[in-house]
Design a protein around this nucleic acid. Sequence first.
DNA 1: TCGAGGCATGTCATCGTTGTCATTGGAACA
DNA 2: TGTTCCAATGACAACGATGACATGCCTCGA
Lengths: 338, 338
Amino acid sequence: MMAEVSIKTASRVLNNDPSVAPATRAKVLEAMRELDYRPDPAARSLRAGRDRSVGVVVEGIGDVFVASLVASIESRLSDAGYQVLITSSHRDVSRERAIVQDFQQRRCAGVIVMPGSENSLEGLRLGDLPVVFVDRVGEFPGSQSVVSDDFGLARIAGQHLTSHGHRRIAIVSDSQSVPTTRDRHAGFRQAMADGGITFDPDLVRDDCLDESYVRDAIDQLFALEHPPTALIATNTRLSLGVVPALHLVGRTDTAFLAFGDFPMAESLTPAITAIDHSPHRLGQIAAETLLARLEPGAIDVSTEPIVVPAGLIVRGSGELPPRPTTQNPSAAIPAGAT
Amino acid sequence: MMAEVSIKTASRVLNNDPSVAPATRAKVLEAMRELDYRPDPAARSLRAGRDRSVGVVVEGIGDVFVASLVASIESRLSDAGYQVLITSSHRDVSRERAIVQDFQQRRCAGVIVMPGSENSLEGLRLGDLPVVFVDRVGEFPGSQSVVSDDFGLARIAGQHLTSHGHRRIAIVSDSQSVPTTRDRHAGFRQAMADGGITFDPDLVRDDCLDESYVRDAIDQLFALEHPPTALIATNTRLSLGVVPALHLVGRTDTAFLAFGDFPMAESLTPAITAIDHSPHRLGQIAAETLLARLEPGAIDVSTEPIVVPAGLIVRGSGELPPRPTTQNPSAAIPAGAT
DNA sequence: TCGAGGCATGTCATCGTTGTCATTGGAACA
DNA sequence: TGTTCCAATGACAACGATGACATGCCTCGA
């Protein structure tokens, strides 16, 4: 660096300091190009106390919903010149806290968190680290959440099924300790109330931590004296378990509505009706929201949750009529099929 | 830090320096616990010249195959105490090079790359940065690749179809500039040769950069004078395009074999026969391979590609017989369906 | 012509950690 | 008891960048 022209005025050039003569700046830039010089992020981070990186904490990137969420976050932030650090919490709240703390330690400019529970970061001392929660409402001083209208969408989902004549509707979900899940249950209950349907706890399965639990839940639901004629799954991962389970037990005549669209949904028989709370949009808006907070002048940022619109994609499975009351299992096979 | 007991002997404790008295070590550890002290990664990285982080470069994390590959890499490395930096190249080789260079700049302990082409890193000066290529063979001095037996698996796939009587088999793929794709083409051609089938360039579509190109390719294939009776897609993403396309044009009577398994494959009608080159396993082994190279004593590491075993999952679509020769498009609808 | 003022640039210290070398104190040996 | 030696610890510089401050020079006005 010293070879070409000036000494550590180079720093000023890098930081766009206006007090550098245009000629000098040009010379320095030329020299940097020639030497293929790149500033050292570690040194910069150490001295300046900030780093052009953003930490992202999610449950697990393997999940299709999460993958697409993360993809859009990464794409946006990386275009903005940030290095993206992604770590999975594997649904362990203490791990989630530790990861966020580590991100702060690493001087991340900000973090985007898909929280395991509202108060997962409670009591953490993060200084003025900008925090944006995504897909699930989180609580943290000064933070902002980017979510879907879980209550409203679940209510619409429930109403969609009741409007097709269903009165025994089961809901398959993970634990209600997850805020999003709780809201979806609430919306579902509201829809049932709207339709004058009595709440039946037998039809509520909030014990499906992942798709591997779904098979048993489905079996048990159909073993009930009055089995459901319709099902709702509260997240994409569980839908990916429900569909094969219905096929396996030959009960694809059951109406099914998926929370979260997924690949192949339209090619299945029946094609799957889904609430599309676009992970792509969610991620994009979360990234934008964080970027806005990283702007130098960002002071009066809102902390109100941002609700990203979503819609119902009608494809068939959600519009199946209630199966005629019968105890004959052969009715599971649609008439006309060979 | 100075408050409790000793001064910067703490560094020795952190680095497990044997020349620290057990009693002192205990006191320091206690003090660190009490003060919730955590070493600063930036300072450490700056001074020590290495960082407990690993860079991962993939095409795009949104892809289901990639997501699951990355998930297992992340899981393994993060358990080993490494911070994982994930960046997508979006299939841009120059971007890929820049990302890897940036990783080196950041003093990553090593990188895992899903290369856009064999020689994508050619000429890059990375010092002794350990490089592991995954899913695709890459070339770089001292690197190692963790891949599937693309040639062999594609050959098996082709033979599977010919053994069911097909002689007009189309292959749908992305560009053959991707090494993996090229190998799969080669295996496919070999299978055709094995079966004494003349190569027909009309049946080779290597212009499907992503699923959005598939629809047109399928249309054109079926518009041929002698349309194919069977199809192979060379990657998961394209399969996700082929299946809906076949449903759309009502040609699900076409035999189909997917390279790469995917969710819902078994619930489709027909269920999809697939080569399962487990991304989970691939990722895990790539991570292990890199970790082995990060061991202090790792000198004589092999640079031979590691081939991860995979298998054919028979589900139905790949075993459909050739459609009887007819020009009547209504034959596309299986007899007996309404 | 001289001084004030501002622009352009340089000097120095510093971020938190670790490598190198110096220092201390006590045990072991002659 | 004196000397040697080693184990345990401390002092100091340095990694590469930047913030605070100092300096030099040129312009402009009196």
